[in-house]
Design a protein around this nucleic acid. Structure first.
Lengths: 145, 145
DNA sequence: TTAATTCCTATTAATTTGGTAGGATTAATA
DNA sequence: TATTAATCCTACCAAATTAATAGGAATTAA
């Protein structure tokens, strides 16, 4: 499961990416539109800024905007930022590798092999899920209704 | 990430399935061979028995054995038992569905669609990962080394 | 000067995770 | 019948993580 942090972060990013006028978007607006607790969201966006995903403008009429093209921001990066490894086992993680301490031989572990295949598939999907891609999906889904 | 409970459970099950003689396997043996804390493993196997995955024999020379064919026990079931939903979002879970409270329209949510595709793939892999399948993988991997 | 915003630091309640402790009960065997 | 080796049962617990909240300082546009 994604943490709420990850979920809120992605929702906020999609909201910012989908905003038409070039004005930065305030935390208040996002919190209100997406039903996310204000102060909690504040800390999340701060972290996204720190990770150079967002940039901010201070003072009145300030807010947050993307610091990169929306097709260069994807779910894999955001989930790693807030939740750490995407893999099911630490021993198959690309970015957060750790041995399974109890495991005597990593190379002949069948469970590990399953986890590797799942990680490969999942990461591929999550990297494909850029903000642009998510907005396209939503446009499609809207048409259907 | 899998919890340690899930990981230990799967390791224990693979160990039991891989045991050649028909004797039941004691918690002590598994704990020792797989480097799992004894008392913790004890509670895990109790849960697996409760879920009718294992059966037990009490008293001296007792222990645990599979309650079903090893190709009818797979990782998806075990993970659901100990960790709950496999899906990234509660709103795409088959077995543990819940609304995302903050979400106004589930049907047009792009993130949800991504999560659905990932769940589909992951569940397929995990259902394919039966004890038999895992043992076959390990036999293959052993040959290679 | 005022209003609206980000920025910063600290705190916290609840839940989950990963165990541990101690003994009761059951059954095989010498 | 005593011994040994198992499962079974109940309770407890420490540490980490999660999901926030509180309160105000600094900044900027109008």
């Amino acid at each position: 499961m994604l943490s709420k942090k990850s979920k809120y972060a992605i929702k906020a990013l999609v909201f910012i990416a989908g905003n038409r006028d070039k004005q930065p978007v305030s935390v208040r607006t996002i919190a209100h539109e997406e039903n996310i607790p204000l102060k909690f969201l504040e800390s999340i966006l701060a972290e996204l800024k720190n990770a150079r995903v967002l940039k901010s403008t201070k003072g009145k009429y300030g807010g947050y905007s993307l610091n990169r093209s929306p097709d260069e921001i994807h779910m894999a990066e955001i989930m790693r930022l807030f939740d750490g490894a995407i893999a099911l086992l630490p021993c198959v993680s690309e970015n957060f590798y750790e041995r399974c301490e109890e495991c005597s031989d990593e190379l002949t572990c069948g469970i590990r092999q399953v986890a590797m295949e799942i990680r490969r598939q999942t990461v591929a999907q999550l990297q494909g899920a850029t903000l642009t891609n998510i907005l396209e999906r939503e446009a499609q889904l809207d048409k259907g209704s």
